[in-house]
Nucleic acid binder design. Structure first.
Lengths: 233, 233
DNA sequence: CGGTTATTTGAAATACGTCAATTCAAGTGG
DNA sequence: CCACTTGAATTGACGTATTTCAAATAACCG
């Protein structure tokens, strides 16, 4: 459960009891392989944490066009959201082999007194998710392909934990990234080549290496949400 | 307050007391003229209902590019959302002359027992808003300009209340619509002309006239959210 | 190693944006 | 009622971004 604890702690500090509670979730761990539908559009199921691997929320049109809404990294969760309708319109699919645990227990103290650190952390995580969705909209609507790619990589770098690190895991196929950014695979490939040629960033073999963070930020136009998430108050 | 009551009633039935409460909000009515910033990015203020006129939530990039996230029609509200962060990333701007009232009172019974009809209605309205945002993402990322325009008009028709009506008010400039759909004004204009030529729909003088609802729905690829919102259970 | 899936590249088509000008609609003040 | 503005809608010509089609590597996996 380490990835979950690490990430939740970035949003709010947890009590010892809460840490134990989260650790306890690890018992009911489930493993899925790449390409599995975890949560179908329309169907409702419980909230889950992802321990390892990558998941995405997406929608597929009748003619095969696909739009990815967001990714779920190790330590993050999905299927939260009190309102079921929010999830009625997206399906969650594993992009790699994935380990998940049921996260429903996190809300079992819902009736109790002050908002627990745990619930505050989850709420902050959801708020952060919302903020990203707004960025995503601007990105899709008003950025060029080059800017989209730059912004996306920057966002992923920040979410990957070590914002300082030059290199971080990005095990997504170009097709997947293209479907997130509203581009064709071929064009994304060309844009990535441009970014590489300009010596901003390099994506290869499931790993991204940022050579020029400053220039990359400049190229992405939008300051990615969570920039301000240095530490919780 | 009639527009607000009408809209809330579509989501949940209100008790007589609740109807009175909402009516009471009308006392503190405020009028704004077109082009006013009601809620700036980053600043937090209370929730509000729009009695008349049109508002949009948007973001403007440094270089002037604008992306509109959503519109607020008469009877709808904005600035809700428990999490302030959600609104930290968008500004609300009036597109026409607008009347608003403070909606904070709606939440004053927050501590009480079962979810009131009022709160259920507002929550449903927010859920609906979320669902639309997902549609918006797909629209921006994966629909062609022609499909975008068709889908947008269809969405507006449904939100305008009378889903049956052939004609409904759509007092938006083409520039505004273009900024919502991630298109240039010129191209949107051409696409609207195509829709008119194909005899699907006509937008002129702030009014949209749907000539062929079936064909329009077919052209919009996505079934707009709220299709299923015939009446509450 | 062979078979499959991802990445990369080229050439051609098309969708969409930009620039610039014209028309149209709706005031506004004389 | 008529110039005269002003902002929006419309159109043409042209440039560019992005997609599509097709094929050739390159990486991965059993």
């Amino acid at each position: 459960m380490a990835p979950v604890l690490r990430r939740l702690s970035r949003f709010a500090s947890l009590s010892a009891a809460e840490i134990e509670l989260v650790r306890g979730l690890g018992v009911h761990r489930r493993r899925w392989r790449a390409g599995t539908m975890l949560l179908t559009e329309g169907r409702t199921s419980g909230p889950q944490f992802v321990l390892s691997g990558w998941v995405c929320g997406q929608r597929v049109l009748r003619d095969g066009r696909r739009q990815i809404f967001d990714f779920v990294l190790a330590g993050e969760g999905f299927g939260f959201g009190a309102r079921a309708e929010t999830h009625e319109r997206q399906a969650f699919v594993t992009l790699t082999a994935v380990d998940t645990v049921d996260a429903a227990a996190v809300f079992e103290d819902a009736g109790t007194e002050t908002p627990s650190g745990l619930r505050r952390a989850v709420r902050a995580m959801l708020a952060h998710e919302d903020a990203r969705r707004f960025d995503h909209i601007v990105r899709l609507g008003r950025l060029t392909a080059y800017e989209k790619a730059a912004h996306f990589i920057l966002e992923m770098q920040q979410r990957s934990g070590a914002a300082e690190a030059r290199s971080f895991p990005l095990p997504l196929t170009q097709e997947t990234m293209a479907d997130a950014l509203g581009l064709s695979v071929v064009h994304l490939n060309r844009v990535l080549r441009q970014l590489r040629a300009a010596n901003l960033v390099q994506v290869r073999g499931g790993v991204a290496i940022v050579h020029d963070p400053k220039a990359l930020a400049a190229a992405s136009v939008l300051p990615p949400s969570g920039d301000d998430l240095a530490a919780h108050p």
